[in-house]
C-alpha cells in the first residue's frame, strides 16, 4: 500500500531549537523553515501527501521559533493549502498545536493578503512558493535579506 504521508521530526533538526531569526541565534525558526520545512512541504504538496510535523523530543520551544517556521509556510503557500496538508503532532505540549492553528496560521494569512513580507535576516537560497495565478509552485529568491 502506498504511503499517504511524509514526516518531519524537529528533534532530528535540533535538540535545542532557538529564537525567531537566524541573526538572533542558532537553529532558529527562520533557519528551520528554509532548510527543512519549505522543501518538504512543497514535495508533499505536489505529491498530494500529508506532511506530519512532530514537535516532540527537543528541550522545548520559544513561541517565536514555531511562529516564524509555520507562519512563513502560510505566507508562501496560503492558509488553505497548509491546513489541508499539515498535521502537527505534539504529545508533550499540545498547547503549541493550539497556538499554531488558532493564532499563527490566521495571523500570517492576514500578513500574506496584506503583502507584509516576512523578515529575512540572512540571504537564503531560492525557496518554493505557491503561485495562485497559475496554480503551481515556483522557486526563486522571493525576499532579500532585510
Amino acid at each position: 500500500m502506498e504511503e499517504q504521508k511524509v514526516s518531519i521530526v524537529i528533534a532530528d533538526y535540533s535538540k535545542s531549537p532557538g529564537p525567531r531569526y537566524c541573526r538572533q541565534g542558532d537553529d532558529s525558526g527562520e533557519d528551520f523553515y528554509h532548510k527543512v520545512l519549505n522543501e518538504k512541504f512543497k514535495n508533499a504538496f505536489e505529491q498530494k501527501l500529508e506532511l506530519e510535523v512532530n514537535l516532540d523530543g527537543p528541550d522545548g520551544y520559544a513561541s517565536s521559533f514555531l511562529d516564524e517556521a509555520f507562519g512563513n509556510l502560510v505566507f508562501d503557500f496560503g492558509l488553505e493549502n497548509v491546513q489541508s496538508r499539515i498535521i502537527i503532532v505534539s504529545n508533550e505540549e499540545p498547547e503549541w498545536i493550539e497556538m499554531i492553528e488558532k493564532e499563527t496560521y490566521v495571523q500570517w494569512e492576514i500578513r500574506r493578503k496584506d503583502k507584509q513580507n516576512p523578515t529575512k535576516t540572512i540571504d537564503h537560497e531560492a525557496w518554493w512558493r505557491f503561485n495562485f495565478a497559475n496554480n503551481s509552485t515556483e522557486r526563486q529568491i522571493w525576499i532579500n535579506k532585510n
Binding site: 538572533q24 520551544y61 520559544a62 513561541s63 517565536s64
Partner: peptide
C-alpha cells in the same frame, strides 16, 4: 520544557 520556553522567550 516550560523552563526552556521561558528562558528562550526572555532571551529572545
Amino acid at each position: 520544557r516550560p523552563l526552556y520556553s521561558i528562558a528562550q522567550e526572555m532571551c529572545a
